[in-house]
Amino acid sequence: MFIINLTYKAEVKKIDQFLDEHIEFLNEQYELKHFLASGRKVPRTGGIILCNIKSKSELERIIENDPFKKNKLADYALVEFVPSKTCEELKFLME
């Protein structure tokens, strides 16, 4: 499992120009069951995605299709972790 930490490299005005395309990218990944949760940072300096992809190289290939990546609007930090404890509703993450 990975936490994807996006940090914007451009002004929010520029980010907003590609936001609809980014949301389409996210929707595709949710449909494929790759992404579990996502949202903006507060303050709005980027975003966070919780991803259940097991392979870092596969995740890197997926990220290349994100319009924010294609247009060099954000940096991506990938943090891999293994859940060892969850609330009851998220037990599936440990399977």
Score class of each variant (00 low, 15 high):
residue 25 F to H: 11
residue 42 V to T: 14
residue 90 L to M: 12
residue 7 T to F: 02
residue 6 L to P: 03
residue 61 R to C: 07
residue 88 E to C: 00
residue 65 N to A: 03
residue 71 N to M: 05
residue 94 M to E: 11
residue 70 K to S: 00
residue 77 A to C: 11
residue 28 E to S: 13
residue 38 S to A: 11
residue 1 M to Q: 06
residue 1 M to C: 09
residue 41 K to A: 09
residue 16 D to I: 11
residue 83 P to S: 05
residue 68 F to H: 10
residue 14 K to C: 08
residue 18 F to K: 13
residue 2 F to Y: 14
residue 58 E to F: 09
residue 11 E to T: 08
residue 71 N to D: 04
residue 75 D to E: 15
residue 90 L to Y: 13
residue 37 A to I: 09
residue 15 I to Y: 09
residue 56 K to F: 09
residue 72 K to P: 00
residue 84 S to I: 14
residue 12 V to Y: 14
residue 75 D to I: 06
residue 18 F to Y: 15
residue 18 F to C: 01
residue 47 G to I: 05
residue 81 F to I: 04
residue 71 N to K: 01
residue 94 M to Y: 09
residue 4 I to Q: 08
residue 20 D to W: 04
residue 66 D to G: 06
residue 79 V to E: 08
residue 75 D to G: 02
residue 45 T to N: 06
residue 20 D to R: 09
residue 30 Y to P: 10
residue 42 V to C: 08
residue 42 V to H: 09
residue 68 F to T: 06
residue 91 K to I: 11
residue 88 E to G: 07
residue 35 F to P: 11
residue 42 V to A: 12
residue 42 V to S: 14
residue 72 K to E: 15
residue 33 K to D: 14
residue 11 E to A: 15
residue 70 K to H: 07
residue 79 V to W: 03
residue 78 L to H: 04
residue 19 L to P: 03
residue 85 K to G: 02
residue 39 G to V: 04
residue 41 K to C: 00
residue 36 L to Q: 14
residue 34 H to C: 05
residue 9 K to W: 02
residue 62 I to N: 00
residue 46 G to C: 03
residue 84 S to P: 00
residue 2 F to N: 00
residue 34 H to S: 12
residue 11 E to L: 08
residue 62 I to C: 01
residue 24 E to C: 10
residue 52 N to S: 12
residue 44 R to C: 10
residue 7 T to M: 08
residue 77 A to I: 13
residue 18 F to T: 09
residue 40 R to T: 07
residue 89 E to Y: 14
residue 80 E to Q: 12
residue 95 E to N: 14
residue 9 K to F: 01
residue 90 L to S: 13
residue 64 E to Y: 05
residue 65 N to E: 12
residue 63 I to G: 02
residue 32 L to C: 10
residue 78 L to P: 01
residue 7 T to A: 08
residue 45 T to K: 12
residue 91 K to W: 01
residue 5 N to I: 14
residue 90 L to P: 02
residue 81 F to K: 11
residue 30 Y to G: 04
residue 69 K to N: 15
residue 32 L to F: 13
residue 2 F to M: 06
residue 17 Q to T: 13
residue 34 H to I: 10
residue 24 E to T: 15
residue 12 V to C: 03
residue 6 L to Y: 13
residue 94 M to V: 02
residue 11 E to I: 09
residue 16 D to E: 15
residue 31 E to P: 00
residue 27 N to Y: 07
residue 45 T to F: 01
residue 89 E to H: 08
residue 42 V to D: 11
residue 67 P to E: 07
residue 59 L to I: 01
residue 15 I to G: 08
residue 55 S to K: 13
residue 45 T to L: 10
residue 18 F to V: 09
residue 54 K to R: 06
residue 36 L to V: 14
residue 54 K to L: 08
residue 80 E to F: 10
residue 79 V to C: 07
residue 80 E to Y: 13
residue 84 S to N: 12
residue 68 F to E: 04
residue 10 A to E: 14
residue 89 E to R: 13
residue 69 K to Q: 15
residue 57 S to R: 04
residue 77 A to K: 15
residue 8 Y to C: 03
residue 34 H to M: 12
residue 32 L to W: 07
residue 68 F to M: 04
residue 50 L to N: 00
residue 80 E to G: 08
residue 24 E to R: 14
